[in-house]
Design a protein around this nucleic acid. Structure first.
Lengths: 211, 211
DNA sequence: ACCTGAACACCGTTCAAGT
DNA sequence: ACCTGAACACCGTTCAAGT
């Protein structure tokens, strides 16, 4: 039988939607904090829940399992990257292939470097989840956007834009990923920043046909 | 007090060294088998030991922990790759840059494809261990070999071979890794096989100076 | 000497019991 | 209705007890 004090002690009902959003946000933040502060090996559902200020049980209301949590956190990060790349693609439409190439590489590197620590931390858990499907969706969205800019190039056209866009994406993403995975110093990131534009421009020029 | 039957039932002492090697080999094989058959999530020390026909305790005599085991298995795989790439480098010494470029890319792709399933399976556990240090060592050895062939090129020389070799390695390895990570169909591997040579040759030509 | 496998600490996940 | 956290199954690792 509920005592009268219950009415006072219990928090008033907060708007369901807003509360949920805040909780999810707190869990996301907690995940990255634990990852950065304690490492992938100590990234525990209990620890994340504790840091986020909720019980494990509550966390499992929002995410059915640990993998789903990591998936969501990584998706959030990748979506942010994709947004930036898409924006860059739209801004580069109708330029020459040289400008497009440099702009794309710069945008991609910039986006990755903006969230260097987070990106590195997330790469460390990447293999624990179905990174495959996420990256596939990622590839698709970035692929569409890149195909669009390449097609819009002022001075050239491509035999098979799909293949070219795929190659470009997988090479740049792969190189950056490789550097991030292996301890990724910022020095090495700088080498990429100077060499990738040359490589991409050279590749695009090699496979392009004059318009 | 040992009974007389012990002398009969106990296996005779097998040469220490040879026995160890066989056991370690069995554990390596068991690891990859469990990985391919049951997936990374079910890759368990107990399961590996069982499959290898030893007790967990025995396995811990050879490998101080699970990470060390995975590290060793991955190292074994990467060393195999490096050997092939180094061999290719030696064979390509003194050729023109075009031949060297195509030869290098072909050798790298070939080596990866030879062990496609193993490579894919290992990528799935890559993040669980200090892949970083392994890849760093890997990078170094491959870097040396690639620098050597590039320097030996008949027709051109490079301002900074170290940077060029690094870029080449990280791009090709990254692209292949990216494709393997995301479910890597062989169809996509084929696109790489046709595009990477073009890209690498274009890059090398762009940064090379006539001799 | 060397191997075994029960035991321990800890993790992901669930769900009865609270409020 | 919603949250909690003890409880459960399972994992990595150890080490007393066997042979």
């Amino acid at each position: 039988m509920p005592a009268a004090s219950d009415r006072i002690l219990k928090p008033r009902k907060t708007p369901r939607q807003a509360r949920s959003e805040a909780t999810v946000e707190a869990i996301f933040d907690a995940t990255i904090q634990v990852l950065l502060a304690e490492g992938a090996a100590r990234l525990t559902t209990t620890r994340v829940a504790e840091r986020a200020g909720v019980s494990v049980g509550t966390m499992y209301q929002y995410f059915p399992n640990k993998q789903a949590l990591l998936h969501a956190v990584l998706k959030r990060h990748l979506d942010g990257l994709i947004d930036k790349v898409e924006k860059a693609c739209r801004a580069l439409a109708g330029e020459t292939i040289a400008v497009i190439s440099d702009g794309l590489v710069a945008a991609y590197l910039q986006a990755k470097m903006d969230s260097f620590d987070t990106a590195r931390a997330l790469y460390a858990v990447g293999a624990e989840l179905d990174l495959g499907s996420l990256q596939a969706a990622n590839s698709k969205r970035v692929g569409e956007a890149v195909m669009a800019v390449l097609t819009s190039a002022l001075d050239v056209r491509f035999e098979d834009v799909r293949v070219v866009a795929f190659t470009l994406h997988v090479t740049v993403a792969g190189a950056v990923g490789a550097v991030l995975e292996r301890g990724g110093s910022r020095a090495r990131a700088k080498i990429l920043a100077s060499e990738l534009p040359i490589m991409c421009r050279a590749y695009l020029t090699a496979v392009a046909k004059r318009k």
